[in-house]
C-alpha cells in the first residue's frame, strides 16, 4: 500500500511570546489515513493542529519558523489566501460550537460565504452533508430551529457536517470526543473510520485507546518536542523511545 504525503512539516517551531510551544518539528502526514497526535496535555498537540490551518495566526504575539507544505505549497507563503487554505480543512473542536443560527444555516454557512446562493443547490448540500454525518434523520423536521437546541453529541455531528460542506480535503479533530458521552463518541469514531477513504484525517487525542482504535499513523509529542512518529502498529507495539514506552504504559500522564 503506497503512502502519499499530504502535509509535510519541516523544522516547525512556534513561539508564544518568549515561550516555545513547538520545537523543531518535522513530520509527514499521510494522505487518506487517520493520523493521531498524542501526548500529555500542554505538549503542543493543539498548536500543531492549528498550525495546519493557520488558526494560530490570530493569537497575539505568536511567531512561527519552519515550513508546512500541503500538496507541495508552503502554507506560510504570505501570498497564499488563508481563507482558501482553511476551506481545504474542516475543523472539529473540543466541544461543539454551533454558530448562532439554525441547523440549516450552520451547514449552509460555509457554502454561502464561498459564494453559493441558489436555494436549491443549498438545500441539496445541507441534506447531503447532514446524511453524511448521520444527522439527517434526527433533524430533518426541524432544520430551521436553532442549532443550540441539539444535544452535545448531535451538535458535534452538525459541526462535522458544517465542516464537510465546504468540501475540504482534510479533517482536523482537536480532541473531538472529549465533551461527548461514550455512545456519541463512538458514533464520531465510526464516522472517522468511514470518512478516511476520502479524507485525510488528523486527530489530536489524549485518550490512548482512542488512538489505538482509530490511528493508522501516530505522532507522539512531549513538551513541544516530537519524540516519535510512525505507523500506529509500530509505535504502539514496539516504541523505540523510552518516553513513548512510558506514555503508552501510562507512567507519564
Amino acid at each position: 500500500m503506497e503512502n502519499h504525503t499530504h502535509i509535510r512539516v519541516r523544522e516547525l517551531s512556534v513561539y508564544y511570546g518568549r515561550e516555545q510551544a513547538l520545537k523543531n518539528i518535522s513530520v509527514d502526514i499521510p494522505e487518506k489515513r487517520i493520523t493521531a497526535i498524542i501526548g500529555p496535555s500542554g505538549c503542543g498537540k493543539t498548536t500543531l493542529l492549528k498550525s495546519f490551518n493557520r488558526l494560530i495566526d490570530s493569537i497575539d504575539g505568536v511567531r512561527v519558523s519552519g515550513e508546512i507544505s500541503m500538496n507541495g505549497d508552503n502554507i506560510f507563503n504570505p501570498k497564499i489566501d488563508v481563507t482558501l487554505l482553511r476551506k481545504k480543512m474542516g475543523l472539529l473542536s473540543q466541544r461543539p460550537h454551533p454558530l448562532p443560527m439554525s441547523i440549516y444555516d450552520n451547514v449552509a454557512y460555509g457554502p454561502r460565504i464561498h459564494g453559493i446562493r441558489k436555494k436549491r443547490k443549498l438545500d441539496q448540500i445541507v441534506e447531503h452533508y447532514l446524511k453524511e454525518s448521520s444527522l439527517w434523520e434526527e433533524v430533518r423536521d426541524r432544520l430551521h430551529t436553532p442549532a443550540s437546541g441539539l444535544s452535545v453529541g448531535q451538535q458535534q455531528r452538525l459541526c462535522l457536517a458544517r465542516g464537510l460542506a465546504v468540501e475540504p480535503e482534510i479533517i482536523l479533530g482537536d480532541e473531538p470526543t472529549s465533551a461527548l458521552d461514550p455512545t456519541a463518541s463512538q458514533r464520531i469514531e465510526e464516522k472517522f473510520l468511514q470518512l478516511k477513504a476520502r479524507y485525510t484525517i488528523v486527530v489530536v487525542t489524549h485518550i490512548l485507546r482512542q488512538a489505538v482504535r482509530l490511528a493508522d499513523y501516530v505522532v507522539f509529542l512531549y513538551l513541544g518536542e516530537l519524540i516519535e512518529h510512525g505507523p500506529a502498529e509500530e509505535v504502539f507495539k514496539s516504541p523505540k523511545k523510552e518516553l513513548t514506552q512510558g506514555y503508552i504504559k501510562g507512567v507519564i500522564v
Partner: peptide
C-alpha cells in the same frame, strides 16, 4: 471558539 469555527470554514 465560535469565531474559530467560522474562520476554519474559510470565512
Amino acid at each position: 471558539e465560535v469565531r474559530e469555527a467560522s474562520l476554519a470554514l474559510g470565512a
